[in-house]
């Protein structure tokens, strides 16, 4: 058991190192930082001095090494675009993304799981059919299209909800939240809905498919034969065994939501780190791009590793072989 955990963590660390290498290579390939940071009139001495100061005279391996050391300490350099420390830029934007993603995750699980169970238990119910049809539309219509349609209806036509921004926020030191002000909550409704809609549909379809499969198994039939009421059979016997893929999904879901938040943030001009990244890509602001890549990867890989551990804790069969086979359901 311990060996498996250590191996998992080692794997995650190795993947992180490779991601760091990719981020480092982006720096190496895209332009000379000396040329980007100094103006054209800079003298040769100034160039050499900067080159020495940035450590660019060192061998590539040493440069990569110091890059990783600095990254671990949260030092990603200075943004080319607005000459500020990348880390403080991202720290400023992180709460907005975090809030958006958390609210969407809660929405996705709170709506997706019950709907999925409902559709599986009553496959012939017209409401369940409609829910299944809507879920098909939900996984097909792009999130940015849903966002635009929501803005067209609720902001442009009806004028009920703000079309962009975060509303008023309350500051707690470096953390800011919009959940405590009425305008902040109003501003959150549309971005969170459009971000969650794909995941609601996805979770619903997943739970329905799993439930239908479990309901066909012998132990469910046997529970029915014992005369247990439907409610107990469905929720205590069947649903429990459907939750495994949902646990995996929730881990991946949060990762996906963080990545897809950048689309939603672009549509609603939500001041999160996704919007920061999209703007950085437009200007080829490499330090911001690299920092975002690494931070999102850290979150993603950490979540996946935690999911693997949950798997090990929940499913004793995996502890023997040491492979979390179910972790690859997608």
């Amino acid at each position: 058991m311990l060996a498996i955990i250590v191996k998992r963590i080692g794997n995650a660390a190795l993947v992180m190192l490779v991601v760091a290498f990719i981020a480092f290579m982006i720096f190496q390939f895209l332009g000379d930082p000396v040329q980007l940071m100094l103006n054209a009139q800079a003298s040769q001495e100034e160039r050499v001095a900067l080159r020495l100061r940035l450590g660019l005279d060192q061998p590539v391996v040493m440069q990569f090494f110091s890059f990783v050391i600095r990254a671990v300490q949260g030092d990603f350099g200075i943004s080319f675009r607005n000459q500020r420390e990348v880390m403080s830029l991202i720290a400023e934007r992180f709460p907005a993304t975090f809030e958006l993603v958390m609210v969407s995750t809660v929405l996705a699980l709170a709506i997706g799981v019950p709907l999925g169970v409902f559709a599986a238990i009553n496959p012939k119910n017209p409401a369940a059919r409609i829910a299944r049809m809507i879920s098909m539309v939900g996984v097909s219509v792009p999130a940015f299209v849903i966002g635009i349609v929501l803005i067209l209806v609720f902001s442009v036509q009806l004028g009920w909800l703000p079309a962009f921004g975060r509303g008023e926020v309350v500051q707690f030191g470096t953390w800011s939240t919009g959940l405590l002000t009425p305008s902040g909550r109003l501003a959150l409704i549309m971005p969170a809905t459009s971000l969650a809609l794909f995941q609601i549909s996805f979770i619903m379809r997943l739970v329905t498919a799993e439930m239908l499969e479990v309901l066909r198994t012998d132990y469910v039939k046997f529970a029915r034969a014992r005369g247990l009421p439907d409610r107990i059979v469905h929720f205590r016997h069947a649903l429990r065994n459907c939750m495994m893929p949902v646990v995996t999904m929730t881990g991946m879901l949060i990762g996906d939501l963080i990545a897809f938040a950048l689309v939603t943030e672009t549509v609603f001009q939500w001041p999160g780190m996704g919007l920061l990244f999209v703007q950085a890509v437009m200007f080829i602001d490499i330090p911001v791009m690299a920092a975002y890549l690494m931070i999102v990867s850290v979150i993603f890989i950490t979540l996946n590793t935690i999911v693997d551990f949950i798997y090990l804790a929940v499913d004793p069969r995996l502890r023997q072989t040491g492979t979390a086979g179910g972790a690859n359901v997608r």
């Binding site: 993947v15 490779v18 991601v19 996906d256 963080i258 990545a259 975002y292 890549l293 993603f300 890989i301």
Partner: peptide, 9 residues
């Protein structure tokens, strides 16, 4: 490795 970074990114 490819799967461990979000595809969109």
């Amino acid at each position: 490795l490819v799967l461990s970074i979000p595809t969109l990114l």
